[in-house]
């Protein structure tokens, strides 16, 4: 039995936070785990911060709201500042270093600074910094596996935009391989 993993994904509206969370959740579903995905909603979605709680567990999930994440993906500075102190000791923090220029203040975390936005632009994957960071989450925690994540991408990309699936998968691998 794998350990439960509670993940907070946060950033600006438009960075694909909810989509990134959906890929993580769908991978958990494919792996046969209990999962939940809870977005922030309301006015803060419009131009403000967006965040998303994803829980992966082998037990039925109680509260789907992640207040003490085991992993944090932060795609902008306000989100990083809002959630960094909530991460459990020993937890994983992954930031988009193109957007978040910080030096970690906590020594009890595994900290990964991935220049995801820059990597996306360099690799003709514009707009897929979010998926690169999901790849990094897989690289850092092995919460799922490549095959499940690729199927999750197929399920999460809308039926009309299946042409985008391949780019998403490249972004995933790029993130997973990033040191």
């Amino acid at each position: 039995m794998d350990k439960p993993l509670n993940i907070m994904l946060a950033g600006f509206g438009g960075q694909g936070i909810l989509f990134a969370g959906k890929i993580v959740a769908y991978a958990g579903l494919i792996d046969g785990r209990e999962i939940s995905w809870l977005p922030s909603y309301g006015p803060e979605m419009r131009g403000g911060t967006a965040n998303c709680s994803v829980c992966l567990s082998d037990e039925p999930i109680g509260s789907p709201l992640v207040t003490e994440p085991d992993a944090l993906i932060a795609m902008n500075l306000p989100s990083y500042e809002k959630f960094i102190d909530t991460v459990r000791p020993g937890g994983v923090v992954i930031v988009d270093a193109t957007m978040v220029n910080v030096t970690p203040t906590r020594s009890d975390l595994r900290f990964f600074a991935v220049p995801a936005t820059q990597l996306a632009e360099e690799n003709e994957l514009k707009g897929l910094a979010n998926v690169i960071l999901v790849g990094k989450l897989q690289g850092a925690t092995a919460f799922s596996n490549r095959q499940s994540l690729e199927t999750a991408i197929d399920k999460s990309v809308s039926a009309k935009r299946q042409d985008l699936a391949e780019a998403n998968k490249r972004a995933l691998v790029l993130g997973e391989m990033t040191v």
């Binding site: 959740a25 579903l29 209990e34 999962i35 995905w37 809870l38 977005p39 999930i61 789907p64």
Partner: peptide, 10 residues
Amino acid sequence: DGMLGQMMEP
């Protein structure tokens, strides 16, 4: 409630 309406589960 808003949580059950907005959240995704299998």
